[in-house]
Design a protein around this nucleic acid. Structure first.
Lengths: 119, 119
DNA sequence: TTCATTGGTTACATGAACGTTACCACTTTT
DNA sequence: AAAAGTGGTAACGTTCATGTAACCAATGAA
């Protein structure tokens, strides 16, 4: 998905999509709602994401200032990610998406059955 | 971006991303908040989307039951799209995204200036 | 008669996003 | 001595979503 250039648009939804529009970003952010989480734990909780993509997405989120990376100098290493102050502002969107998800999925499944029967 | 298979997941956010996760879908839906809009008007209001992609995305949204397509048998043709009942349930997410967009964009722009100065 | 209008479709091309596999450094545990 | 645990990186491949350009039918207007 070619990314938007946030600065060329005035539409607030475009801005939002620019920063959290990726396939995985809302899901990652959703895992950080209850506080800092280690890299490895994220990888387990989001089984379909590869470590490489997870690393990339986390780096982008950090560059945009949505999350903070804490690296503890231990062996084996420990790295935790948590929502920054800016990241906290995304919470209402994540909540709305969570609220919507299950209800909508059910409704759409029903809708599709109706359409299929009418073939 | 490879799409999620909604039925293989139990995460509500994944469901939401499945149905409105495309680059353009939230923006299109945002244009329908105030009632039915003609195809051509959508194309003008979202200048960076091509007619082909607009057609495709509208078709997907219709198949998922989020919008309703009204085709009037006139020459030249007139086609209008509006939010369905299911589509209305997305409004809170769109509102949250709108609310977030401008605030977050400003905050992130500031953040990036800080980071750049610290080089 | 030629142009504009409208809502598309078709064929083709592209690249960003995503994925897979292998590898690394360093320590503790077995 | 070998394996496990951790958080990555590098080199490669793939594919889907997106984009461009040209075209269409039917009517009314110039």
């Amino acid at each position: 998905m070619k990314k938007f250039k946030a600065h060329t648009s005035t539409c607030p939804i475009v801005h939002t999509m620019t920063y959290i529009g990726g396939k995985w970003k809302p899901i990652i952010l959703g895992r950080l709602l209850n506080g800092a989480v280690r890299f490895g734990k994220l990888a387990v909780q989001i089984p379909d994401i590869s470590r490489k993509i997870l690393t990339e997405q986390l780096k982008e989120l950090e560059e945009d200032g949505l999350i903070i990376r804490h690296s503890y100098n231990e062996k084996p290493p420990r790295v935790e990610y948590e929502l920054s102050e800016i990241g906290q502002t995304v919470i209402p969107v994540l909540m709305a998406m969570t609220e919507l998800g299950s209800k909508m999925h059910e409704a759409i499944t029903k809708h599709k059955r109706r359409v299929t029967r009418a073939h």
